[in-house]
Design a binder for these strands. Sequence first.
DNA 1: TAGATTTATTTGGCTTCCCAAATTTTTTAT
DNA 2: ATAAAAAATTTGGGAAGCCAAATAAATCTA
Lengths: 220, 220
Amino acid sequence: MLHFAHQSEENYLKALYKLEQRPVKKVNNIALAKTLELNPATVLEMVRKMSERGLLETLGDKTIQLTDNGRKKALQIVRRHRIWEVFLVDKLQYKWNEVHEIAEQLEHVESEDLIKRLEAYLGHPTVDPHGDPIPDEQGRIKKLKTQPLGTAPVKTRLTIRSLANTSDDFLRYLDKIGLSIGAKLEILEIEDFDGSLTVLFEKKRLTLSKEVAENLLTDA
Amino acid sequence: MLHFAHQSEENYLKALYKLEQRPVKKVNNIALAKTLELNPATVLEMVRKMSERGLLETLGDKTIQLTDNGRKKALQIVRRHRIWEVFLVDKLQYKWNEVHEIAEQLEHVESEDLIKRLEAYLGHPTVDPHGDPIPDEQGRIKKLKTQPLGTAPVKTRLTIRSLANTSDDFLRYLDKIGLSIGAKLEILEIEDFDGSLTVLFEKKRLTLSKEVAENLLTDA
DNA sequence: TAGATTTATTTGGCTTCCCAAATTTTTTAT
DNA sequence: ATAAAAAATTTGGGAAGCCAAATAAATCTA
């Protein structure tokens, strides 16, 4: 009768998927343990079980990898998480930096039908509030072709499509200066010295540090 | 880090609250075990723990009772459950007999703020889709003054406000004949023989068995 | 009231997830 | 290549919830 039965497993799947998305794809026990904030012994044990269940496999060099089946399940969870995030922001007026924790809980509710209805209710969104794409029912995901702001030359007009960093700090900073997904910018100036750049945003000049620019993913 | 930590405890609280609402209020181990579909040994153990936590107490005659604190928590869960049910029916077009299971999961999501926002988003509903009142934040609940259909004399006009039975069978039956919360009826005839009654509903005659009538709670 | 039935309780055990503290293996740097 | 560091693994253990089966206590019934 217990719901949320596989909550832990789902967290492992999501963490592995997340780690898999990084440029450096080697995922070992320690990395996974760190991500999940769990003891390596715990992770080792769970990895064994999930391996038996065919959700992941450990390679010769101890690298942990999702199987296709595991990845499919991971994507389902990512899908649920992102759809709930859209709901929280679009309908309940949460700010994008406030939704993560609640979505972490909602994503474990087991009902694909619920997610389908919710998706329809939200108008079939394609990205979550941070610009991350929402996988479809089959786990297919459209990778956005984005470039970090700052790779484009001066005078380019572009739109912020996604974020390379969704930490609370960064989200709050963006909130403060008014930037969000969909913001249209024009690059005015790039400072050779520190890589910072000045952009035109809603008719005002805005200076962004190199680090900020690297975390803003744009369509140009 | 684990969410839904007290899911089991919440189920006990809810079950106790539900049992407390019955005319016969004596709740023993067995009754609770039956309601929760758990082994009596399991229940006994949990009852001891929850007693230590001050959520319930066992009387001299082994009767199990919620403490005020426990009841308050129970009402919070009932509140969450009913608000989610309204969401599912009003926004996601679920039928009232389909929402229970999903709401059972959603009710365990821990965020009072979420519930508050959801409540506002839904327009501060006062009753759930079955006509059961929604407790406020403090756990206060407005008892509806209702009467089973059939206690009123012929010619009375009344509105269905709530249901004494929310089993899937009954809900489906009501759905089939078109009755729902808010339906306005006029009693045309009461059959002495079997207690069945004929009512006028949306300009059509409808005959309801005594049992059905007893489970329809009205405002008159 | 004795026997039958129902409840309550105890006991031992299970699964899932988790941890800390060894220990072993592997990798890395010198 | 060897010592140091890092990673993997083992071991023993714990809390939360759950169960089945045995026993004890209470209640009912003839």
